[in-house]
Write a protein that binds this DNA or RNA. Sequence first.
DNA 1: GAGGGGGGGAATTTGC
DNA 2: AGCAAATTCCCCCCCT
Length: 264
Amino acid sequence: MSFLDNDINQHFQDANDVIQRHSDDPYCDTEYKYFEPPMRSSIMCCYPITHPFDVPGPYDWNEQTSWPHVVPYDSLGPSVTMDYPQFYSIAPPPRNGKGRKKLRLFEYLHEALGDPNTADSIQWTDRGSGTFHFISKNKEKLAECWGKRKGNRKTMTYQKMARALRNYSRTGEIIKVRRKLTYQFNPSIIQRLGGISHVIPPAGHPGASHPGREVLLHQQHAPAEQAYYGSAAAPDWHSWYGHFSLQGDCDLSTSFTSSTVTKV
DNA sequence: GAGGGGGGGAATTTGC
DNA sequence: AGCAAATTCCCCCCCT
């Protein structure tokens, strides 16, 4: 168990505790829906998985050619234009909540991704790989909503929210995908938040135990889709990370070869 | 050149 | 009080 995993485990143990305590709260409560963590069942209902191994995951550590293609950015449904005014009617959060951990941004984003009401602001690009993107038109609304939920003094903007997201690159909780407004969750984050990413780096896998390495994935056909780390030290779960790309721009099975990965 | 998106340094604020 | 996380401000770069 890596240092990162221990830390994340602690966070999610706490989150689960809270979820258990509030399991009677209706997730569909529009006024306070973002005050409380979503019910586990609510999250899971978004991911109709009956068995974790029924669904091929993108993070098969041994079979690099087995990853499914992902949803093309351009093929996103018409939901991006849907209007859900209730989503933004969110009151400030209660201060000094006792026995409750601070809501993390990635938790909020994951929550938003599981809520159809936020589909006009944030959507899964590929749920299986934990990749999501913001809708340019409404990303500021989501950011504003996040700021309100946190009770910030000033209005949250996408730029500021993105700054926080970039900080996640250092911890590896979320990394930036080299595509506009697109980010990717660490699979362990997805799994613990109730997602479908079921593949966990094996105990002996470098991604589970050696933080600090950096990787730059050079993909032959679609450099614009590269996932990459910046200069900051990032955890080395780059195997799952580097494996990701987007259908239509890059063929995973052909692009990810030993010769295409450069360790910086 | 303008605008949007992205990256990051640094200081500050906030909550645990 | 100390720390982690997030916020805020700022500047810069790249791309279209």
